[in-house]
Write a protein that binds this DNA or RNA. Sequence first.
DNA 1: GAGGCTAGTGTATTTTTTACACTAATAAAT
DNA 2: ATTTATTAGTGTAAAAAATACACTAGCCTC
Lengths: 249, 249
Amino acid sequence: MANLDEFFKSAFTVDNVIFGFDEGDLKVLLIKRGEDPYFGYWALPGYFVYPQEDLDSAAIRVLRELTGLNNVYLEQVSTFGAVHRHSFGRVITVAYCSLIKIDNYSIQPSSIALQAQWHPVSKVENLAFDHIAILQACFARLKWLIRYRPVGFELLPPKFTLTELQHLYEAILETKLEKRNFRKKILSMDLLIDLVETQEGVAHRPARLYKFDRKRYQKFLAGGFSFELKETRKKERFTKVVTNGIGKE
Amino acid sequence: MANLDEFFKSAFTVDNVIFGFDEGDLKVLLIKRGEDPYFGYWALPGYFVYPQEDLDSAAIRVLRELTGLNNVYLEQVSTFGAVHRHSFGRVITVAYCSLIKIDNYSIQPSSIALQAQWHPVSKVENLAFDHIAILQACFARLKWLIRYRPVGFELLPPKFTLTELQHLYEAILETKLEKRNFRKKILSMDLLIDLVETQEGVAHRPARLYKFDRKRYQKFLAGGFSFELKETRKKERFTKVVTNGIGKE
DNA sequence: GAGGCTAGTGTATTTTTTACACTAATAAAT
DNA sequence: ATTTATTAGTGTAAAAAATACACTAGCCTC
């Protein structure tokens, strides 16, 4: 096919929705663009995928260049490819969602942007390109994620209290939860290790500190999620060997 | 940036995992490739995305060309972009999952393939490119989907029995379900309309026929899925207006 | 009319969810 | 030293949902 060349004129990027949790608020890390198009606009950190680079690698690279972090939660969410979303030509972008502990690193915007800053998710507006839609998609994914998989610890410091964890859930789900039931549910998952330590310097009863049990979490992931519809446990019965005269061997 | 041109030398495709349900088996529609690379291999139906075409449109086009169907369930699942996945150059592919009623159309493989055929999902192997991985990703998505959203009707004929529906669930989830409980659960969702008709021509008690209630389904989707962790319903109490002397306006 | 087969239902038991109120521990205020 | 404010943490009743299992119903074939 001669005209196949026509297809090899497009580019693709990765864009990274980096979530963090701070002061009871869910935040997203945005950069101020230092180049056209959308010079000076806030945008999701992202960049073109190099010819010899896998998609995941590109997302990891973008994250590392911006935050210096490796080995954080990172997951592909979806791909955006409207024809005119980029003025330089046909550019589709693969959106990634990542979760980091907000005070665990220092931002180095130098390489790809004028500046980088955390923004409360609920107040973000007017981003470059179609980045608002991408952010929304990733936020929706996070909402799903937090419910079906205990990824909360990716966003919290290594030691945290149950109340902090609850506030995280409330921030993500945009709702209030009942303390007693939240604790029962979380503890029943058996994924928290009681550190037998308590908070210090608070003007009230200090809370116990917990950490996540990574090993059990691995098992949790491997063991398949519990389903809403359980399969029957009915045991196979022995079929009657002596039928009424007619054997069916 | 002068070297930006380097990025505009890649292409992207869509690949479509089309599921159907027939004879108690979950099936996937594959084509036999009529061109290189992987000439003669079974593969997922897919094609390059045209320069002036959105991703979703391309997926819809591929599906239509192959099956003649429009307006079927279709959802983007994920994007595969390993560097050497395509021998013609850098080609990433966006995977779509679609659900169709298997006896509802006739396959027209002519345009894009030597032939097209339904294959039981459990027996598929040796596909072109990385299509096995794509199939697995879409199958995993379907397993998730069927559990949290009653998409079953997309795969069934307009009229169906509860047993057929149960078999569909069992095929997708690869498990056995308990009849009584399955029915209770499905009926409690209030998404089925009892047609007060029964099967004909079966050598046993004929089963009742049902159809899905599209309107209620829309509401179901709009109303947000029920969450595992409900928010508290506790009412805000009136705060005491008269404090112990010291006002705090 | 009996036998075979699948459709469809009743219900006791267990488990989970929900709701709400109570007690506990600490620092700051008096 | 005692009280107050504030958040941590627990006990449990009641309601709802899930689970398990056995039973009855209706049609065709022989």
